[in-house]
Simulated scan of single mutants.
Amino acid sequence: MSLPVFIRGYLRASTEDQNASRAKETLSQFAQEHGARVASWYIENASGTKADRSELMRLLADSQKGDILLIEQVDRLTRLTHDDWSSLKAAIQEAGVRIVSLDLPTSHTAIKTMSNDDFTARMLDAVNSMLLDMLAAIARKDYEDRRRRQAEGIALAKSKGVYKGRPSDTELRQKVKGLREKGFSIRRTAELAGCSASTVQRILKELQETS
């Protein structure tokens, strides 16, 4: 007979504006489809490239062996360097927590795995550990590739004498406003507008105050 496991949902957004409501609904629905429910939520705003995650550490501290760390995508957990990911993974393993990620189908079985089926559990853990490492490496590479392309684009524009840096404040305000009205997230708006997420947040606050 399968014993219920304690499922802890982890939600990470890169900026304050990127709230995790949509992801929370998605994870709740996933758990329900597997005959379970998310017992507690841990939500924080932090870059996937930063190892300092207070809410994730609190989740691990609260967990018992066999509990499930539920995430929407592996890149919500990590875009860390190899060394930082190895340290985080070791902390997760030390806590005895199993990762279930919606974009890693082989991990879904952990919700249904019988706690007394040690062989099956160990085999699944071994397979998922390998796949998690692969997805973590891909997530980091994606981040580094985007940063590299951005730097190359700026360098090329400068070499052609067409790089003007960031747009003037008036242009930037209009661009940010337009992108947000189209439904882009804070992070994506910042990328498209060529500014930081904090700048986007400042402009939105100013626009709100003057509206």
Rank of each mutant, 00 (worst) to 15 (best):
S196R: 10
G35V: 07
S40F: 12
R122V: 00
E44M: 11
L124V: 01
G66F: 13
T170S: 14
Y42A: 00
L88K: 15
Q93D: 14
Y143F: 13
E206C: 04
D145M: 13
A110T: 15
N45P: 05
A197D: 09
E25A: 15
R37V: 09
R173E: 10
R37A: 15
M123T: 00
R37L: 14
L70C: 12
R202K: 13
G165L: 02
Y42V: 00
I7P: 04
Q64A: 11
L11F: 13
I186P: 03
M114L: 08
Q93P: 09
I68A: 06
L11C: 07
G161D: 09
D142Q: 14
S198F: 05
V97T: 10
S196A: 12
M1E: 06
E33R: 13
I71L: 14
S2E: 03
V200W: 10
E44W: 01
I99N: 15
T106P: 05
A23W: 10
L135T: 13
S21F: 14
T49G: 02
A136S: 15
H82M: 08
W85M: 12
Q201A: 13
D145L: 11
G66M: 10
E16N: 02
D133P: 13
K182N: 01
A13I: 06
K164R: 09
A126T: 04
L131S: 02
D67F: 01
V74Q: 01
A139C: 04
E55Q: 15
N45E: 02
M57V: 00
A126W: 01
L69R: 08
L135K: 15
K158T: 08
A23D: 10
F6M: 08
Y10G: 10
A151T: 08
K24Y: 09
N19S: 03
A136L: 02
L179C: 05
D118M: 06
A51Y: 09
S40E: 15
R187V: 07
L179N: 11
L172R: 01
G48K: 04
E94R: 09
V5T: 12
I43M: 03
Q201N: 13
T106Y: 09
L131D: 01
R37P: 02
A193M: 08
A46F: 04
W85K: 07
K175S: 05
A190K: 06
L192T: 04
K205C: 01
R58D: 03
D17N: 02
I43F: 05
R53P: 07
E25I: 12
L3I: 07
E191Q: 14
A139M: 07
L204I: 10
T120S: 06
A46M: 06
V127F: 13
V100D: 11
D169L: 06
T81N: 01
E171V: 14
A90W: 02
L11H: 02
D125V: 06
D125K: 08
D125T: 11
E181R: 07
N45L: 02
D75Q: 12
M123E: 00
T120K: 14
S107R: 05
T26W: 04
R173K: 13
D84M: 00
A20K: 08
E33W: 05
L59S: 10
E152H: 07
S87V: 09
L132Y: 07
I111H: 03
A137H: 03
F184G: 02
